[in-house]
Design a protein around this nucleic acid. Structure first.
Length: 595
RNA sequence: GGUUCCUUAGCUCAACUGGAUAGAGCAACUCCCUUCUAAGGAGUAGGUUUCAGGUUCGAGUCCUGAAGGAAUCACCA
């Protein structure tokens, strides 16, 4: 790669001129700004002490040395301490030839690194909504990105399938379900169970109001509402393995899973392994014991177990109740060990909303204090909530943007838009439906992934997700446009193998810019994995598509008379399409060949 | 109240981890389809990067403080 070569050349130059060895990883280039001539810029300000010269002098001396000794450097110019390097254009032709022969991502070596990514982790009471989509897309995408960077990745889903809240919907169903199944009602199983969860809340509120009217204090009423007590009772029975209750639980969860499966399939998200809290909620108690022995935890008079994190600017945190039952963090400690036994990973990523920042900080700290070898590789991929104009989404209140509905709406929009443009009249029904879905999901995924995860985002249902401009559809459109060109090149028998253009020595600036962008792809790929940031990929794709669109508008391909140039532009188109397709896959966005 | 996070153009977001004159899309306005897909391209306008200090050759980015917003501080998960 060019940048690596340039790094070495700078290192040599420093050695020869200043008798100083710069470590390679410290040699950094940035893109030359458009208003100056050059491709890459080396900043010399930091090296004053080494060279003993002013930055602009250092830059000039370096530039002269490089021009003299390095074949690919054609020229240079110095602006203050910025050394702009102008490369021989044959370098870019050669770069494209290499790209053409072997895409850059095929050069990425397999790492000896296992990564587990936990995401989605739904609650079986709550049908998936827009916020969950952000989670699912992030988790899926981060997994794909790490895998593309050579890691072995395991995608897992930890399903929250037990607890009082589950009993609530079960109870509401017992009372008002009349034994109906989702098939009877003609709705998805997860939706039906979700409805009963909402139903419970209505019943609960009614009871609370009644109590308050009868003179009970609000807070007490909320604790003593009979229906709540009954739900708690039900949880006890469930824990004791009561047949009637567990049968109902299994039946209702079965419905939910069917619904979830359908949604996962529809949005193109997959998992390698499922964990269920009903299997893991008892884990972790033995580790509490271990922690007591190690002196990491301490016991209070009432028998409850705590950890003191005051030294870390955190508080004391309960890890086991006085009655010996576990809390949330107990089972998370246990599950962490379980996961490591199943898949001894170096990195473990938890894709969970930022309302649990504190929880994960504590969890990772505890595991570190317990001396778990894997604790250093743990990472909470924390993302901001998706908010509506009137505030947060609440499943309990029913104020959510439902995932299935949103996807369906967008498919409808894609269909309308495609109808207006009218380029796929010869598509079969099936092909057309595939395309609509591809476009709808592309728009949705891009919309959610292009934003840095930790930022909260606002979704206004009134103005729909873009099919224009900086959007997923723009990327897909660019890809489809290129495919048209490749089809024509193929039917006209125009070669774009590297020997058809390798002799070229001059390039248009748009061509050069595009080649540079293509060859920089691994940098973004690496950055995305390093920072768990699909947004890096998304933004790169946009830049790439934009750069190509510019070239497409400026330069004619089939109207070009010089055969070598024609071939080069086709090769450039091909490389762009392949890169878009590869990067799109990392975001879960499919690229159509026609649209 | 403590802690953590956020604040960039009217709106939604970028900015290669401290680099040069802060960039895109949407919305507004001008142009460009008898030439490879106009779901596109070129342009105009829009900024004291919330504010006040500091660090240095250089700060949207780092440090301190302030303002506004969010989350969390449960023997819920």
């Amino acid at each position: 790669m060019i940048l690596q070569q340039l790094q070495k050349e700078i290192q040599n130059a420093f050695q020869a001129l200043f008798n100083h060895t710069l470590p390679l990883e410290k040699i950094d280039f940035q893109q030359t700004r458009k208003e100056f001539e050059g491709s890459y810029t080396f900043v010399t300000f930091p090296y004053g002490k080494i060279t003993g010269k002013r930055p602009d002098e250092t830059a000039t001396i370096l530039g002269e040395f490089l021009k003299e000794n390095v074949a690919i450097i054609k020229n240079f110019n110095v602006v203050k301490g910025f050394l702009n390097l102008v490369l021989e254009q044959s370098v870019w032709v050669k770069t494209l030839a290499n790209l053409n022969n072997k895409p850059v991502w095929q050069n990425i070596k397999k790492k000896d690194e296992k990564v587990m990514v936990e995401y989605s982790s739904p609650n079986t009471n709550k049908p998936l909504h827009l916020g969950h989509l952000r989670n699912n897309f992030l988790g899926y995408s981060v997994s794909e990105i790490m895998a593309a960077n050579g890691s072995e990745v395991m995608k897992v889903n930890l399903v929250n399938d037990r607890g009082v809240h589950i009993c609530k919907s079960m109870l509401a169903y017992q009372r008002h379900g009349n034994g109906k199944t989702p098939q009877d009602l003609g709705i998805k199983g997860d939706k039906m169970v979700g409805d009963f969860y909402v139903k419970f809340n209505d019943l609960f509120k009614a009871e609370v109001n009644q109590l308050v009217e009868a003179g009970t204090e609000q807070k007490r009423a909320e604790k003593e509402a009979p229906i709540l007590k009954e739900a708690q009772q039900m949880l006890l029975k469930w824990e004791q393995g009561d047949k009637e209750i567990t049968d109902l639980w299994k039946k209702m969860n079965g419905w939910v899973y069917e619904g979830f499966d359908e949604t996962y399939k529809s949005i193109g998200v997959k998992f390698d392994k499922f964990y269920y809290e009903s299997n893991t909620y008892l884990l972790g108690k033995d580790i509490i014991e271990e922690g007591l022995e190690k002196g990491v935890f301490f016991k209070k008079e009432d028998g409850s177990v705590w950890i003191d994190l005051k030294d870390e600017k955190l508080d004391e945190k309960l890890v086991l109740r006085a009655d010996g039952t576990s809390v949330y963090i107990t089972q998370d400690i246990g599950t962490a060990d379980l996961k490591y036994r199943d898949f001894p990973m170096q990195k473990s990523v938890y894709v969970v909303g930022n309302e649990q920042d504190y929880h994960f900080k504590v969890l990772f700290l505890i595991l570190k204090k317990l001396g778990r070898s894997y604790s250093d590789g743990m990472h909470h991929l924390s993302y901001g909530m998706v908010e509506l104009p009137d505030g947060k989404m609440k499943s309990r209140e029913g104020t959510v943007v439902d995932a299935d509905e949103l996807v369906n709406d967008m498919i409808k929009m894609a269909k309308e838009r495609t109808g207006e443009v009218g380029k796929i009249d010869d598509f079969s029904e099936q092909e057309a439906e595939n395309l609509y879905r591809m476009l709808a999901l592309g728009a949705l995924k891009y919309y959610l992934l292009r934003v840095e995860p930790k930022k909260k985002m606002l979704f206004n249902p009134a103005d729909s997700i873009d099919f224009q401009g900086n959007s997923g559809v723009y990327l897909q459109y660019t890809h489809a446009k290129i495919c048209a060109i490749l089809r024509k090149a193929n039917s006209d028998n125009i070669s774009h193998k590297s020997d058809s253009f390798e002799s070229l020595t001059a390039l248009e600036s748009t061509e050069e810019d595009l080649i540079r962008l293509l060859s920089d792809y691994p940098i973004y790929l690496n950055e995305a994995a390093q920072n768990y940031a699909p947004s890096s990929i998304a933004n790169y794709m946009y830049d790439l598509a934009k750069q190509y669109s510019k070239l497409y508008a400026e330069l004619s391909i089939f109207g070009e008379e010089n055969e070598s140039k024609k071939s080069l532009r086709i090769a450039l188109s091909d490389a762009t399409a392949k890169t878009l397709k590869h990067a799109g896959k990392l975001l879960g966005i499919e690229m159509p060949e026609r649209m």
